[in-house]
Amino acid sequence: MREFFAMGGYGAYVWSAYFLCVVVLGGTVAFSITNLRTLLRTLSNSQQGPSD
């Protein structure tokens, strides 16, 4: 197991590259979902509230 994380001495490079990808790819999905939910909520609120 320790060998797996060491990556033959290149662990710092390999894992930081993978970590960056996970953060960025996961972040874009999370951002998109939040953005869409917020929009849907605002739109449904504006329908119930007084018309503008």
Partner: peptide
């Protein structure tokens, strides 16, 4: 991953652009 984020982004973009259209008002919140 691209297609997933694209679908979510297109939906958000359409809602923003069409917020006064009648079909948007029928969407469930």
């Amino acid at each position: 991953h691209y297609l997933t984020v694209l679908m979510l982004g297109v939906r958000a973009g359409l809602l923003k652009q069409e917020k006064r259209a009648s079909w948007v008002k029928t969407l469930s919140p």
